[in-house]
Amino acid sequence: MSSATTGSNDSGSVPETARVCHGDDGPAPSLAVVEAIAELVDVDPVDLSKEGVVLYEHVDPDALNALVAGRADADVDISLTVAGYDVRVGPDSAVARRARD
């Protein structure tokens, strides 16, 4: 996987959020989104589609990369919902959290 960091409410509980850095030596922004969601689902990113999560059904990955990649000095903040996960993509990371009902 990647340099994902997760946060949870209690020790031993299911993580509520996952953050994956992108750019520089990290993955492209769209791949950071996939890795963050995979971290929450607790599967390898290549197996995420088996869980019913397919990024390109929700956003064009190339367009997302074009909007965010290489703009570390810009004020970029994109929010979207992907298969029940709220995702925010900023200039240097993607953060996914379980959507609240």
Rank of each mutant, 00 (worst) to 15 (best):
A18I: 02
A18P: 00
R19P: 03
V20I: 08
C21W: 07
H22W: 02
D24S: 10
D25H: 04
D25W: 07
G26C: 09
P27F: 09
P27H: 07
P27K: 08
A28C: 07
A28P: 00
P29K: 02
P29I: 02
S30Y: 03
S30R: 03
L31M: 12
V33E: 00
V33F: 02
V33H: 03
V34E: 05
V34P: 06
E39K: 09
E39I: 08
L40T: 01
V41G: 02
V41D: 07
V41R: 09
V41S: 05
D42V: 03
D42F: 00
D42P: 04
V43Y: 06
D44H: 13
P45Q: 07
P45A: 10
P45K: 02
P45V: 07
D47G: 07
D47F: 08
L48K: 00
S49R: 11
S49H: 10
E51R: 14
G52L: 08
V53E: 06
V53R: 05
V54W: 06
V54C: 04
V54Q: 06
Y56L: 11
Y56T: 14
E57P: 02
E57A: 12
H58P: 10
V59I: 14
V59F: 10
V59K: 05
D60F: 10
D60R: 12
D60H: 12
P61W: 05
P61I: 13
A63Y: 09
L64Y: 01
L64K: 02
N65D: 15
A66E: 15
A66T: 14
L67Y: 10
L67S: 12
L67E: 06
V68G: 01
V68F: 00
V68L: 00
A69F: 14
G70D: 11
G70K: 12
R71E: 15
A72Q: 14
A72Y: 13
D73V: 15
V76I: 13
D77H: 11
I78R: 04
I78D: 02
I78A: 08
S79P: 11
S79M: 13
L80Y: 03
L80C: 03
